[in-house]
């Protein structure tokens, strides 16, 4: 027979036993291990996800922080730049002012030097002019001119009014009655007589007349008593003229100095 029923039953029992054994030794253990692994993987995934979220939060936090730092740095930089610009402008302005002041001082000193040089030049020039004039006049002075001088001297004596003349005469008499007539060149005896006669006539006959020669007078004649002097000479004219020239030079210098002092504070600063 193809089917042995004992074997059939025995195989069914064998199968049930095998099923039980495999369930115990294979399926349950394998499934348990797989479940454990699955659980582990799941928990790891959860953990990884949590860590990822944490990392994302952290990165966001640092990103914001970085932005904040950038913003602050830019602000500080802008502030510092503005401050630096302001400072630079201030320093430039100060430097310009200083330069202006130094330039003005230099100009002023230059001006002063120029002024003093010009002054000196003028003085020297004037002195030279007078020296030359004196020399020229001395060279030109001859007897004709001397006569004219004596005439003008005498006419000056003549032109004195009576009270003036009397006063002079009194003072001459008081001092001893001596008068000295000085001239640049030596006077001839005719001229001397003429002068003596005129003096006696005008101031009284008791006065004594003496004659002296003074070449530095250049041209002219003068009458000298103690405390009295009546004169006409070129030296005196030239001295008076020189005095006037010096005075006018001084006045001019004074005006220049005042002008330069007034000009200095109103000077404008050039722009950049």
């Amino acid at each position: 027979m193809l089917i042995d029923w004992f074997t059939v039953v025995a195989q069914m029992v064998n199968f049930i036993i095998l099923m039980a054994l495999l369930k115990h030794f294979l399926y349950d253990r394998i499934i348990k291990a797989m479940d454990e692994r699955e659980e582990k993987i799941h928990s790891r995934l959860l953990k990884a996800e949590a860590l990822q979220q944490e990392a994302a939060q952290e990165s966001e936090f640092y990103r914001l922080k970085n932005q904040e730092i950038d913003r602050k740095r830019n602000e500080v930089l802008a502030k510092v730049e503005a401050e630096a610009d302001r400072r630079r402008e201030e320093l430039t302005l100060n430097a310009r002012k200083e330069i202006e002041i130094l330039r003005d001082r230099w100009r002023e000193s230059l001006h002063k030097e120029q002024e003093s040089f010009l002054q000196q030049l003028r003085r020297t020039a004037a002195g030279q002019v007078f020296a030359i004039s004196r020399r020229a006049l001395a060279d030109l002075a001859d007897s004709k001119i001397e006569k004219k001088v004596i005439d003008s001297f005498l006419s000056r004596l003549e032109s004195m009014d009576s009270s003036e003349r009397q006063e002079a005469a009194i003072s001459i008499v008081k001092e001893g009655g001596l008068v000295v007539v000085r001239s640049a060149g030596k006077l001839s005896s005719v001229d001397r007589g003429k002068i003596t006669t005129a003096l006696h006539r005008l101031l009284g006959g008791e006065i004594k007349v003496e004659y002296e020669t003074m070449p530095e007078m250049i041209l002219g004649i003068e009458l000298v008593s103690r405390g009295q002097k009546i004169a006409w000479n070129l030296e005196e004219y030239l001295g008076r003229l020189e005095d006037q020239v010096r005075e006018s030079l001084e006045a001019e210098k004074e005006i220049h100095g005042r002008e330069s002092r007034n000009r200095q504070p109103t000077r404008n600063l050039p722009h950049e």
Binding site: N14, A33, K40
Partner: peptide
């Protein structure tokens, strides 16, 4: 009667159980 069918079946059963026991002895959830 103990015939070849039963003997080979037992052999297979022994093989399977022993194999399973050996393989699942040190299972790990790692």
């Amino acid at each position: 009667s103990i015939n070849a069918t039963l003997v080979f079946t037992w052999a297979i059963m022994l093989l399977l159980v022993a194999g399973s026991w050996l393989a699942t002895r040190n299972l790990s959830g790692d």
